[in-house]
Amino acid sequence: MEFKDFSLFIKYTKVGAPFVEALASGKVFGTRCETCGRTFFPPRAECPDCLEESMTFVEIPTRGKLLSFTSIFVPPAHYGVSPPKMPFAKVTQIPCPVGVVEVEGGIRVMGWIPEVALEALKVGDPFEVQAKTLKNGQVTIVLSPI
């Protein structure tokens, strides 16, 4: 498992392997500074307060509320849909909503929202953050309604 299995483009980071392996085992990891106790998500290798590199990986709280969301109908090239070669054919994409959840303790987590239709989403709804392994082997984060 490589960090690219989460990040798509970026291969190398000090926090990559533990983060993606945790996602694969169903956990979402942040890091905590052993010197000052501050917790970070996304995980980072160095504490900007202490300038120390003494981090421990910790599971972040997962329950919280939806801060905002969207659904991207004009996707970037990476997720783009190629036009069909068949004459008169059309491809209609129904994009998966994306949102940000604030979990207990104030950490903000971005993730896909595969289980709820766009029209049914409301800012402030209770949501849970979950690690997810996709069919193609990639790992990601999903947000599920509680």
Partner: peptide
């Protein structure tokens, strides 16, 4: 953020869409 946001298919309109949704709420 090319590492932590882009993998979720985020686009420039996507970021401001979240700003808009939050502003509306």
């Amino acid at each position: 953020d090319a590492i932590w946001e882009y993998p979720f298919g985020m686009t420039f309109p996507g970021y401001y869409a979240m700003v808009a949704r939050a502003h509306m709420a």
